[in-house]
Design a protein around this nucleic acid. Structure first.
Lengths: 341, 341
DNA sequence: CTGAAAGCGCTTACAG
DNA sequence: CTGAAAGCGCTTACAG
């Protein structure tokens, strides 16, 4: 049997025979309240199942203790890993982190972030999705809004995730192992990371040909979406005399599609075809052959982004960045290619 | 250059030369305000970048338009899919959905849910993680709190996700295809779904032996965690004369570990060993061989759970459940086994 | 069509 | 050590 409406601190006060102020002091542990009164208030509160209305409290204190992270509607696995890192960092700093997903155009998303920032429920906001710069704030009057996206136009703050330098390392290692023919299976070009990998691939091969005068050849850039099927199709569409060829896929999902496509064509990996991926997906160590890939420490990126936000809202200096977030994991699919020394 | 503090409706009123009530009527579109006044208020609001404080509004109206979903700290991929479904359903019903992750013991989680429910910021709460029944509510005085978990002790509401009937279909199809030796690679037994799959496997094989008198044999239940590595190790530990054997893995991640282990032992799949998975992970169609598995419509489950919540908070009758959420996807790894007719 | 006033549930100087 | 009062930023009867 519960009341028709949740009890308030006023109810507790009345029942305990004290003022509402006293209840507040007891519950926040701020005033100096006699043990006896304290006891009584606590007992009453407990007995009627009183719980403070956090919205009301935070309207008064302007401190909600809550931080929001904005993600896309369908957060990809990588965003999940970032969320985990961000969540832990928030936790450690004593904040509750909540996630809000947004949809639609960049204007829609910007509007929603602005709304959340002004809404008064969050002390700070981190967005993993691209928004217009106008939504960003370092926290003067309004709560700080930081962008930490590996996926955007603007490469704000933690955009280090989109770096594609290691693509060059892949190519050079493959060249050193004797490979001369290359193919890039690209990801969705809406993603900065996909564009960076593609651009680096292109630049690197151009460099090989013109600068180093190597007879390296690119069969081109194929794919263009983050699906294994598109990668498989790209391989099925290759000419019969494509092998030997080194296929650099923009992520592991594409790479497994390449593996499958090669198998369907009767090409052996890493004999006829070598393959590299990106992201170090959980399945990559167990495919046949296992995938050479780039481990990206999304958790650390999420942690760091959250630390930046917390520093901003506390008015502290932004913490220094940790060690590099990317690292090549050499496995079977790249054949004899080895790390440069 | 922005003010030291965000503008309020009072500021707008003063600047527009009207009362705060008028501003409110204009912004909520409720009162009957003359077009001229309306225009002026809107213009002022726009010019000073006014945005309503949602916390204050909802304190007054007791309507926040926000729903919360509780997930574990590290939401597994399947939870993500449920979130997507839930989010869309909330959207369609005009609610904003936010996600809050909880950690710790079941008591900790229960406390946190209770806190959120009383906090006054949400009109309803859906939890994907197990909590004590005391946290659940159908929404009398306090917002409704529903559990929709495929992963819990208690199998509340949408627990249909944990059903393992199809495990029996797998076994029977494999028997019909001539298989007599079986192995189950189990998932983490903290999960209702893992326990159900294991129990069904055991019951089914016991039935084959005693009831049907078949010479079917179980090599046992191995594994016990959701990692490909544990599955691989389980296969590496099998006796040399294990094949031919049918391996029923509790999910696709385990199944890919089995595939890898079999390859390392030089066993062909589906020749020496056949394998089935569960969950229809994205990579399953691209392994060599591709994985026979169970497609689980997590999105639909998330949708439905959200519909239940919305019905509860509106005091409507709960919507009927949709079509079955599980369906076997036959692929290469199960060899000749085919759906029963 | 518009305004003055009360109140949502809290917290916090300020008196006493 | 405790209470009366004001106020956080809104909305909503109630008058006019």
């Amino acid at each position: 049997m519960s009341a028709a409406v949740p009890p308030t601190s006023r109810d507790v006060a009345r029942l305990a025979g004290v003022s509402q102020a006293t209840v507040s002091y007891v519950l926040t542990g701020k005033g100096a309240i006699s043990p006896a009164t304290r006891e009584r208030v606590l007992k009453v509160a407990e007995s009627i199942g009183y719980r403070p209305n956090l919205a009301a409290r935070s309207m008064r204190t302007r401190r909600s203790g809550r931080l929001a992270v904005i993600t896309g509607v369908v957060a990809v696995g990588n965003q999940m890993r970032m969320l985990t890192g961000a969540s832990r960092a928030a936790d450690e700093a004593g904040y509750a982190m909540e996630t809000s997903s947004v949809d639609g155009t960049v204007e829609d998303r910007t509007e929603r972030v602005l709304e959340l920032a002004a809404g008064g429920q969050y002390e700070g906001i981190l967005t993993f999705v691209p928004v217009l710069p106008e939504a960003l704030s370092d926290g003067g009057d309004t709560p700080p809004v930081l962008a930490a996206t590996a996926f955007d136009e603007q490469m704000h703050s933690a955009g280090e995730l989109a770096q594609a330098d290691l693509m060059e390392v892949f190519v050079h290692a493959l060249v050193a192992a004797g490979h001369r023919r290359f193919l890039h299976v690209a990801g969705s070009q809406e993603f900065a990371s996909a564009r960076a990998r593609r651009d680096t691939y292109l630049a690197c091969l151009a460099g090989l040909q013109s600068v180093q005068g190597l007879d390296a050849e690119s069969l081109g850039v194929v794919g263009g979406e983050w699906s294994a099927e598109s990668a498989r199709q790209a391989v099925l569409a290759l000419p019969d005399d494509a092998p030997p060829v080194a296929v650099l896929a923009a992520n592991d999902m594409l790479a497994i599609g390449v593996l499958r496509g090669a198998a369907e064509r009767g090409w052996s990996v890493p004999g006829d075809v070598v393959v590299t991926g990106w992201d170090n997906a959980a399945f990559g160590a167990y495919t046949m052959p296992s995938l050479t890939t780039v481990d990206v420490d999304f958790q650390a990126a999420g942690r760091h982004a959250m630390h930046l936000l917390i520093a901003a809202l506390r008015g502290e200096a932004p913490p220094a960045r940790g060690p590099a977030l990317q690292r090549i994991v050499w496995r079977e699919s790249s054949g004899a290619a080895r790390p440069p020394r």
